[in-house]
Amino acid sequence: MNDQLSDDALARAFNAWMDDYVNHPETFTSTTATALAHLRDRIDGREPTYGEVSAATLKAYLSHGGSATGRSAA
Rank of each mutant, 00 (worst) to 15 (best):
A33W: 13
I43L: 15
W17Q: 06
F14S: 04
I43Y: 12
F28E: 02
F14A: 03
R42K: 14
G70V: 01
R42N: 10
L39P: 02
T27K: 14
A33P: 01
L39Q: 06
L36K: 13
P48I: 02
A74D: 09
L39T: 04
D19N: 13
A73E: 13
A68G: 15
R12L: 06
A68Q: 11
A37D: 14
A60G: 14
N2Y: 08
T27I: 13
R42S: 09
N23F: 01
S67N: 09
P25N: 01
D3Y: 03
A9S: 07
L39E: 04
Q4G: 09
P25M: 01
I43G: 08
A68N: 10
S30Y: 10
N15V: 00
D8N: 07
A35Y: 07
E52F: 02
L36T: 04
D8L: 12
Y50F: 05
D44H: 07
D19E: 11
V53R: 14
H24R: 15
S6H: 12
Y61K: 04
V53Y: 08
N2P: 14
S67E: 10
Y21Q: 00
S72F: 01
L5Q: 04
E47M: 11
S54N: 11
L36Q: 12
A60L: 03
M1P: 15
L58Y: 09
A16T: 03
L39K: 07
N23I: 00
A60T: 09
T49A: 15
E52T: 08
M18Q: 05
Q4P: 00
Y50C: 02
N2S: 10
A11Y: 05
T49I: 03
R42V: 12
V53F: 04
M1Q: 10
G45H: 09
D8I: 05
A55H: 13
T31W: 00
D8M: 08
A60S: 15
H38V: 02
S30D: 07
A35Q: 11
D20P: 09
D8E: 14
H38I: 01
A55I: 00
R12E: 11
M1H: 13
W17I: 00
T49Q: 15
T32Q: 12
L58F: 09
D3R: 06
A55W: 09
T34Q: 15
F14D: 04
D8H: 06
A11H: 06
K59Y: 01
V22D: 06
Y61Q: 07
T29W: 05
L36Y: 11
F14R: 10
A68W: 13
A35M: 13
D8P: 00
Q4S: 09
H24P: 09
F14E: 07
T32G: 09
A13I: 02
L62G: 07
A60K: 14
T29K: 14
S67C: 01
S54R: 10
N15C: 05
A35H: 08
F14T: 07
T27C: 12
G70W: 08
T34D: 15
T31E: 07
L5E: 03
N2F: 08
T69G: 14
Y21V: 01
L36V: 05
R12P: 00
S54M: 10
D44Y: 05
H38G: 12
S30N: 05
D8S: 09
T31Y: 02
I43W: 10
N2T: 02
Y50R: 10
T31C: 05
L58W: 11
S6F: 09
L36P: 03
L10T: 01
A56W: 02
N23P: 01
